[in-house]
Design a protein around this nucleic acid. Structure first.
Lengths: 206, 206
DNA sequence: ATTTTTTTATTGAACGTTCAATCAATAAAA
DNA sequence: TTTTATTGATTGAACGTTCAATAAAAAAAT
């Protein structure tokens, strides 16, 4: 089977297999053999392409974070309205896209989240992303409210997004993305209510 | 050292040592030897009192959940005001007490949270607690707003509490409990604003 | 076109390490 | 002397990594 130019293909295969394995049995029981079996290759290949198991795990987390960043960035770039509400709305939407909020990516994300507490490299990646979410939210809120208010709004909305997502990942039924988005947007409207004109229709507590 | 009636003492010692170990190096690298060393006993004693490592981990999670439940229950029992606002406020306060929001309990909690995704017994414990938080919030909100509204308010506040706590556990500086409580209470006031008279002073966006 | 050589990709058994669990031995209290 | 509590060396299983062997494709030579 050795064809030339296998590297990018195998790398992606193994990253996907890693997510599948973590989704299946959790990070603690994800062995290189299980990952290799998912990818249909041998265990040794992991060390060959990623230097070892840790390298593969790091690459997998990197991809998840990249996917999230892209999901947000694309929505913000294709905005027909430059208002803070539109930007923050796009951030919410992007955070509940996550390539696939349901399925392997979701549980993998949470597994890495917990793991990052004690692995400096993962913690660094985690922190960069957390800070970006907060900074972006803060910047938009500051356009319509005092800075101290904006900081609290950003902290609150960031917590709500993570909390919705966390509860979704843990609930047996998985994350109801539609409901999560609704709750986040409703909260956003409440935050903006005192400073901005309502979006399209006033929120009528349907 | 063998005195009679050591069982409850050793059990507590080992549970505390488990939290200390998880706080120190994370769940993945928490071995029975490390726990035993923290407790100042030998590794074999863990199997003797808890049937094995898993038994000890389960007991540790049970205690954390019990502590949380108690922290909420105590505050709700000593309420001088039976209003929904007071009850929900007590739930918020209890959730940010957690015996010690900072320190070993916090990281242990998150570690178990992630682990519960693939361990049925931990998942059951996790679910009972999540459901209780939601049910309690929902019941109080229903006293002042339509049921469908109340459900959303409860889901939103539950997500905010978990999200604040999650971000706190992960941030290098640890959870700022005071700030978290402030954000949660502010959100509560926003949720109640349309249905209830303000608490003591109107919220003046300080 | 066919054969030979070189390069690249992959395998999987072997190795060393780590860990949880066990249990016979031990020691202190009753 | 009996009971209770505890130890810690041992055991067996599981894991990640390594590396010599292998096999297929690509390149070179015929």
């Amino acid at each position: 089977m050795p064809k030339v130019g296998m590297e990018p293909i195998r790398r992606q295969q193994l990253i996907n297999a890693t997510m599948a394995a973590i989704d299946e049995v959790g990070l603690a029981e994800t062995t290189v053999m299980r990952i290799a079996r998912h990818a249909g290759v041998s265990a040794g290949i992991i060390s060959h392409y990623f230097g070892g198991k840790d390298g593969l795990l790091e690459a997998t987390m990197r991809q998840i974070l990249t996917d999230l960043t892209d999901a947000v960035a694309i929505r913000r770039r294709t905005l027909d309205d430059d208002s803070p509400r539109a930007h923050i709305g796009a951030i919410i939407e992007g955070n509940f896209d996550r390539t696939q909020v349901t399925g392997p990516a979701a549980k993998t994300w949470l597994a890495f989240w917990a793991s990052s507490m004690h692995k400096p490299m993962l913690q660094r990646l985690q922190n960069v992303n957390d800070r970006r979410l907060y900074t972006n939210l803060c910047h938009q809120f500051k356009r319509v409210m005092p800075h101290s208010e904006a900081r609290n709004a950003a902290r609150g909305l960031a917590a709500m997004i993570d909390g919705l997502w966390l509860r979704g990942a843990l609930s047996p039924e998985g994350l109801n993305a539609e409901e999560a988005r609704f709750l986040a947007h409703t909260y956003l409207e409440q935050l903006l209510a005192n400073y901005d004109a309502p979006a399209s229709a006033p929120n009528t507590h349907s």
